[in-house]
């Protein structure tokens, strides 16, 4: 017997593949109707299409007094709404994957998926930290299927559950490689952080990623750090802590991750992006 929540989730996930056409906005712009706002019909009740206008038969004096109150409420409400809407996060689109001002060769290891979630400092694409468990897993379930591992954790610095999906398919075996994962961190069923990739790139030369995700500016797993120093400027930091890490402060929040050294030696600008993390990913590892 399915619970209500399971039915609702099944309905949502079942319909999730239905997405508007990519050219929807262009079609709206091209439609002649989009240039002819129907201002003549603005008298109908707000928020309800075809709503009734002012009621007839109400005494004029009462209507005037009431309308004054309504105008005041509407003005205050509108001001509050403007404030609320202006604080919403603008959905970013991925930039062209070409760091400017550098001749470093940036070769993303990702390829060929239809859906490319954007990794931001405040969440995954449109799903910000604080979103419900369902909201954050909806897209990932469509792209990656069920999580490979659902793990309850305790005492992990504000994280009580992790969901993990393998993201790398081995070219030799055709099976997911366990070392490369996307991990979602939850606390009381709320999305609090993610880690995309892992500390090593050892197996990555012989496989392909199931999920192509980049930052808003196009930073992807496998990129050389030097290219992104040019793109992000002084907010991009490289550190030898924990065997090599990087960090960048963006308007949406801080992105960080591990760096991988193809050759022996300390982390350097020639090191590669091994993981991209944001939010709360549990207790920090002891450095170095």
């Amino acid at each position: 017997m399915l619970s209500d929540q399971e039915l609702i989730e099944g309905l949502r996930v079942g319909l999730a593949p239905l997405q508007p056409r990519g050219d929807l906005l262009d079609r709206l712009r091209d439609d002649p109707a989009s240039r002819q706002p129907d201002r003549a019909r603005r008298r109908s009740a707000p928020g309800i299409p075809g709503g009734r206008g002012p009621r007839r038969g109400i005494a004029g004096a009462l209507a005037l007094a009431a309308s004054g109150l309504v105008v005041a409420v509407v003005v205050v409400g509108s001001l509050m709404l403007i404030g609320h809407r202006s604080s919403q996060t603008v959905v970013s689109t991925p930039a062209v994957h070409q760091p400017a001002g550098t001749n470093e060769r940036v070769t993303p290891l990702t390829r060929g998926r239809r859906i490319h979630p954007i990794l931001t400092g405040s969440g995954l694409g449109r799903t910000s930290f604080g979103a419900s468990r369902f909201q954050v897993t909806r897209l990932l379930r469509v792209v990656l299927g069920r999580p490979q591992r659902v793990q309850r954790v305790t005492g992990d610095c504000g994280v009580d559950e992790t969901l993990t999906w393998p993201i790398l398919i081995s070219a030799t075996t055709g099976r997911p490689v366990d070392s490369e994962q996307l991990t979602i961190f939850l606390d009381r069923d709320r999305f609090v952080g993610y880690q995309y990739g892992s500390a090593t790139l050892a197996a990555r030369g012989s496989g392909h990623l199931r999920l192509r995700a980049t930052t808003t500016r196009g930073l992807a797993l496998g990129d050389q750090l030097s290219g992104w120093q040019h793109v992000y400027g002084p907010t991009f930091h490289i550190s030898s802590a924990q065997g090599g890490t990087w960090k960048v402060h963006t308007a949406a929040g801080t992105l960080r991750g591990y760096a991988y050294r193809p050759r022996p030696g300390g982390v350097s600008p020639r090191s590669l992006v091994a993981s991209i993390d944001a939010g709360n990913t549990g207790c920090p590892a002891v450095s170095p």
């Binding site: 929807l24 989009s34 706002p37 129907d38 201002r39 603005r42 928020g47 299409p49 509407v74 409400g77």
Partner: peptide, 12 residues
Amino acid sequence: LLRTLARWEAIE
């Protein structure tokens, strides 16, 4: 969406 756009300024 076109009808919503036509009434966009009036929607509360």
